[in-house]
Nucleic acid binder design. Structure first.
Lengths: 205, 205
DNA sequence: GCCGGTACAGTACCGTCAGTACAGTTTCTG
DNA sequence: CAGAAACTGTACTGACGGTACTGTACCGGC
């Protein structure tokens, strides 16, 4: 990694931390460059404006989350051949990971974008949308494999169930932060897991 | 309502609409006063600063939502004596109400606060927390009545299930907005309803 | 060894926005 | 008619995002 890329990453690290704790609007460029010990010129050399910074942050964020989920559910499939049980194991691993974050999940850039709409241009919103659609496809594929084996016990739209994973996580983060209860997110993920058990597991009564 | 109160309400109406579509940070006082045809002095006569405006907006918002939920679940109890069925009816009514909003739910001020943390002082965060705790109590009371009659088919923490209502709604709003799919929120509420059916209804298999 | 790009530093400036200060004015109310 | 409530008007400050442009240290290639 060249020197430029290094500085760019450092700026993004500082910005991300600030955005996730204070929100995008409350994160000032002056503050970022002070912490990075760089001048304003240096910052604008790397990012045309704050929107470009947001775009870069979001891109990096969704790539990382994607990789994390890939690893996690791949590991779950290693632990169990059955798609339902693998998914349930994956959710358990996910919940445990969220529970282990000592200060709770720092927040989600996807939702941050959502609640700061006009601060971001159409590029950012498009990227955000595509990230959510990717997660929908990811979970839908798993759910279809499950439903093929275990007929669901309620008439549900599997696409909506796939979206529910994202929704539960986003909602759980809001709850955790607003209630100052770090374990809340993990609990919500486990409740979703409970739903899948009741929905798909045959001998569950 | 005196003239002062009237102006105050008008300012809050304009501000609320702007905050829900653009976010709090992107809502400028200059913009609000232009639309309200009032001077800056006039604005600061009613609100000490932007935090006071946020506090007033949030207070009014949670009061309204509270009243709405009161009416809705009271109506549901009129329609069915059994607490489980009444709750399911209430959720159905809620989902229908959310589906009928032509442009989707405008967003939730509670989550807006959550994702703009530093913009708001501790008063706002406290109010936010108390609102969520009130909803927890509300739904927990119903769930306990249900669980007393219908033993839950999975070992769940009813408090977390109560929080799940709020979480599903918050998450659903994020999904709706980010995906530009107004029906998403309604679908997520109905999925939560499906969970409650599977969790509590005896002959459901 | 100098040439050109990369990666910044420095300086100066502009518009927008939240917020302050304070004096003056209208409008309602007792 | 007094006094409070509900503003208007004007002038200003400081933080912030962003622009513009000049200068410069470093670094690899020829």
């Amino acid at each position: 990694m060249g020197k430029g890329q290094e500085t760019r990453e450092r700026l993004m690290d500082i910005a991300e931390a600030s955005v996730l704790t204070k929100g995008f609007g409350a994160t000032s460029i002056d503050e970022i460059i002070a912490e990075a010990e760089i001048t304003k010129s240096g910052f604008f050399y790397h990012f045309r404006d704050k929107n470009q910074l947001a775009l870069a942050l979001l891109q990096r964020y969704v790539d990382r989350e994607d990789e994390l989920l890939d690893d996690l559910f791949a590991r779950a499939r290693e632990l169990h051949d059955d798609p339902l049980h693998a998914f349930l194991i994956g959710l358990k691993l996910f919940a445990e990971m969220m529970a282990d974050l000592p200060k709770g999940h720092p927040g989600c850039l996807v939702a941050t974008c959502c609640y700061n709409e006009r601060l971001f241009d159409s590029d950012v919103r498009e990227l955000n949308k595509h990230a959510l659609l990717k997660w929908r496809r990811r979970f839908l594929a798993e759910l279809e494999k499950i439903a093929a084996i275990y007929p669901p016990k309620d008439d549900v739209d599997l696409e909506a169930v796939a979206d529910m994973v994202t929704g539960i996580v986003e909602g759980g983060i809001v709850l955790s932060r607003a209630l100052e209860a770090p374990q809340e997110l993990s609990k919500q993920i486990l409740l979703f897991r409970s739903y899948l058990k009741l929905l798909f597991m045959p001998a569950y009564n």
